[in-house]
Design a protein around this nucleic acid. Sequence first.
DNA 1: GCTTTGGGTGTACAGACGTTCACTGAACTG
DNA 2: CAGTTCAGTGAACGTCTGTACACCCAAAGC
Lengths: 222, 222
Amino acid sequence: MKQERGRRAGRGRSAVPPEKAGARQERKERTRQALLDAGLELVAEHGFAGLSLRQITREVGIVPTAFYRHFRDLDELGLKLVAESFGTLRQMLRAARRDITDYGQVIDQSVEILEQYVSQRRTHFQFIARERSSGVMVIRQAIRWELRLFVSELALDLSRFPVLSEWPAEDLQALAELIVNSMVVTAEGLLDAGSERDRQDIVESAKKQLRMIVVGVANWRT
Amino acid sequence: MKQERGRRAGRGRSAVPPEKAGARQERKERTRQALLDAGLELVAEHGFAGLSLRQITREVGIVPTAFYRHFRDLDELGLKLVAESFGTLRQMLRAARRDITDYGQVIDQSVEILEQYVSQRRTHFQFIARERSSGVMVIRQAIRWELRLFVSELALDLSRFPVLSEWPAEDLQALAELIVNSMVVTAEGLLDAGSERDRQDIVESAKKQLRMIVVGVANWRT
DNA sequence: GCTTTGGGTGTACAGACGTTCACTGAACTG
DNA sequence: CAGTTCAGTGAACGTCTGTACACCCAAAGC
C-alpha cells in the first residue's frame, strides 16, 4: 500500500525511451523536461514541500543520482517551474489582448479565457496557486516577484482603456492588483471545484465581482 | 548546523515544567497546548507539509511517542490548529462589529483592525494563509470550509447596511467573497512585508481597493 | 493504604530520504 | 579509428522519519 512504485518508469533500462534517439543534447533535454513534468505533476499532488528527488527520478525512470546531471538540487528545479508556469500566465494575457474584441464584454471574455487556460494548463496554475504562499521560501519569493511583474504588465494594459488613461499610477497599480488577486483566487477555486456546477458558480461569482469593480472604476475620482 | 536541538526543551526531565503543577488533567492540557503552539510555530517556518512529529515533541521537550497521548497523528493536530486559527478570525470580526462606530470610516477602520490582528496573532493568520492552498488535502479542505462559513457570516453582517439591505443573496455572497479574498491577500502581504514602509504601502493599497469596491456597490443595480 | 489510571520514558526497527563515489558505454571529436 | 565526454548506473553512507512495545511512577480513586 505504501509503495506503488514503478507506476510508469522503467520499461527498458534507460530514461525517457530511446525512440529513434536524437543527438545526445536532445536526449538530455528530453529527460530534463521529463523531470520538470514529473515535478509539476507531483507538486500538484503533494505540494513542493512534500516533493522528493527520488520520487521524481522514479517517476521519470532514471536513477536518483542522475538528477544531478540536470539540476543542482530541488530548489533549482522549482525555480524553473516558476518560470515555466509564468510563461503560461503571460501567454494567457497575450491571448486576452488578442481575442477580446468587443469591449462591452471584457469581463465575460476575460473570465472565460481564464477558465479555459486553467483547465488546459491545470498544473501550471496549480503550481503558482499552491506555492505562492507555501513554506518554501525561495519558491515563494520567486512567485511573488513574478506576480508583481505580472500586475505591472496588467496595469500597463489597463492604462490603455479610455476611462483609465488619466488615472494616477498608484491607483492603476492598486486596481491591477485587485484584479489579479481576484483572478488568482478564482483560479484556485476552479482548480479544486468538484463538479461542473461548482465551476459554473465560481465563474458567475467571479464575473459579478469583476463587474462590481468595474462599476467602482467608472465612478471613481482621485 | 543541522541540529540546533534543545533550543528550548529539556530543562528538567519532564515536559512543560512541573511548576507548582496542577491536577493531572491540567498538566495534560498544558502540554497539549504546548504541542499546538510548537506546531503553529514550526508551520510558520516550514509549512505544514514540512512538519514532523519528532520536531514538535523535541521543541516541547517530550519524547516522540508521548505525542500519541494527545493526538492520533499530525493531521489531527493540524485540524485543531485550523479551528484555533479561525477562532482568532472570528474574534477579529466581532471586534470589527464592536469597534466600528463611524460608518463613514468603515474601510479605514476595518483595514486597521486587520493590520493589528495580523501583527498580534501572526501565526494564526500565517497558518491559514499558508495552508489554505497547501498540498495537504485534509487541512486545505478544512480551511476552505471554514472560509466559506466566514464569508457567509460577513454576508450577513453586510446585509445590515442600509445600501445592501435589498440586495439578492447571491450578490451579497459574491461581495462578501470579494472582500474576504482581498483581506486574505492583504494579510498575506503584511505577513511577509520586509519593512514598515512595505506594510504602509500594502495597507494603503488595500484601502484603495476596498474603496473601489464600495464605490462599485453604491452604484450597483440588479 | 492499595490498586488503577495514564502521561511520559527509552529502546528498537524498518523505510525514505539526500548525497558520495567509482563505474559503464554510447555518442561525439579529431 | 582512437580518445574524450558525459548522461545514466548501482552500491553504500549517514540522517531523519513514524510507530510499536515494554516500562515507570505520580496522581486519582476507593
